[in-house]
Write a protein that binds this DNA or RNA. Sequence first.
DNA 1: GATTAAAATGAAAACGCTTCCATAACGTCC
DNA 2: GGACGTTATGGAAGCGTTTTCATTTTAATC
Lengths: 346, 346
Amino acid sequence: MAGIKEVASRAGLSVATVSRALSGKSNVSSRSRRLAQEAAKELGFVPSYHASSLASGRNRNIGLVVPNVQRWYFSSVLEGVSETLLDAGYDLTLYNVGEQPERRSSILNDFLLRKRLDAVIAVALVLREDEIGQLLAVHRPIVGIGGVLRGASTIRIDDEGLARDAAGHLIRLGHTRIAHVTGDAGLNRDFKLPKLRQKGFAAAMAGAGLPVRDEWVVNADFTIQGAYAVGRRLLGTAAERPTAVFAASDEMAIGIMLAARDFGLQIPQDLSVVGMDGHDLSETFGLTTIKQDPRGQGNLAATTALALLNAGKDSDGGKPAAQVQDQEYPTEFLIRTSTAVPPALN
Amino acid sequence: MAGIKEVASRAGLSVATVSRALSGKSNVSSRSRRLAQEAAKELGFVPSYHASSLASGRNRNIGLVVPNVQRWYFSSVLEGVSETLLDAGYDLTLYNVGEQPERRSSILNDFLLRKRLDAVIAVALVLREDEIGQLLAVHRPIVGIGGVLRGASTIRIDDEGLARDAAGHLIRLGHTRIAHVTGDAGLNRDFKLPKLRQKGFAAAMAGAGLPVRDEWVVNADFTIQGAYAVGRRLLGTAAERPTAVFAASDEMAIGIMLAARDFGLQIPQDLSVVGMDGHDLSETFGLTTIKQDPRGQGNLAATTALALLNAGKDSDGGKPAAQVQDQEYPTEFLIRTSTAVPPALN
DNA sequence: GATTAAAATGAAAACGCTTCCATAACGTCC
DNA sequence: GGACGTTATGGAAGCGTTTTCATTTTAATC
């Protein structure tokens, strides 16, 4: 394991110059730089991460906290974050906190604060004010995706408004008997998104003077399987059945579609379904949905975090320091083949 | 930012004793330990990760290299690894290498070797011998999942044998016209699994004296969407259509089932489908499959890595050092409702 | 060629811990 | 109560870089 000292003596330079040369600093003659690089390559020298971090105070490591890597949305964000971080030469430390709230706080204490992360990206996670305060106190930028964090930069979509649009689409088609599939249970209580989308749904219904029937607002935990099970109950009773379903996620919309097929219900003739998110599978199912781009959001979050980091460094430097800001990410309403006028009007 | 010195002076102890007390070492009186802990808590002291790693040579950080976090199998492994690592107080550094091979090598050089990881867990990735050599040379245990790595511990299933069993099940039911959905294209060329499963399929067919028809061995990239597209081509021509499909993954099996429904084919009456992996969705679809437990495999991989680490530490210590070994993970053949005797025999 | 500003260099001081080593306190046993 | 084996303790030496600061070299100007 060659250290920087060996490189220095082989290059005939001092340790200091080698360090500067290899880390691309200025004030190094091109000759010295070349010498240092050659010696480093010949010895296979790679600077020790910890020594370097300890001395410089920088980590080149950003933490990502997600509730559940299994879900499409989160793994897509993860992919996006991972991509831009890797390109920037940063490490990604992943905290898959899962549904247990107690794990979350232990993570914050034991890991995040341990001075080993330059920044934290939190997805769909509402941190308590004191937790944010702790992070900000140690000068760690925080960027949140899909959840507003006071004092942190945020990337989000207008969940409530978009949900209203989605439900509105069904209403404009003439549907009056509309069910809503949501997903609270068991999940992190901090996870506000389902409530927001539910609120948007309720707003659309109210705006059209339509009743929200409690038995038609059902919970499916954001999974295809959950929605499939729920769908069998919802659609099984031929007596009075909704003519349209607005699901708070595409996964759940797909679950509903699968259940509908089991009962021989044609989509969209017998049942309209609209989802949300733009899941990879939604196209295959011809699902009308509001597409968001979680991977792009991940990219943006990482970029934002990096910008914040640089801003902190040369705070009085040339380029204007990046500010904490709230960015709304663009979405796209995709009308496909899963929605039509209700059967009665057909 | 309180350092260990402040803790020491507040506790009225030396820095050395505080360090020992807080890291749970022996040879510390219970009184000193209590004092140190109290002082640390009062000051909100958290040891600096980098300083600690630099001084001790340990990182408490394990790298996980996966091809694609989006795929169910990989995200499940990730979840398992993350879980046991978090419980053990270890960090997880994730390398989502994606399909680009050049990225992989830069990761190895720039990150893995930078002395910042205690061990590496590689999923479905064949490292070159010299790459393994590099890692072993710096005394980093490697554990591989789903790909045999010379000199590394491995957790795997018998892909070829299990594929043979899966295809064999169709054959025993009386099917002779069996298609196979596999997935090579675009993927990391190192990814051997599809070839192994394909080999198992071929072996089963050969064993029964059945021909493998080239046009019935189709590629679907391991996705539902891909298999759906492929399925529409495969099943669309009513002329001569397979009576059964063996898909190399449950996702692809599901894609086939969706395509079959589009053509009004009943499963299993008109078409039998068998998958592999035990995807969360397979139950919902009644899919016959061979279930493996990627999350459990992730748990085991992490445990193995940790054991290897400890073995390295007290190599001549009490408990026998953990050995490099090849572990076959148990699987379960689940016969559900997607398979039956072929239509002709019905 | 002298004068001055700018660029390049090296010695050494951090960075904040862990751990070795020597010493001190504590029991235990005859 | 002295000798001895344990267990606790503190001082100080690392760990391998980066960065400050003082110094030397180079370039630029008159």
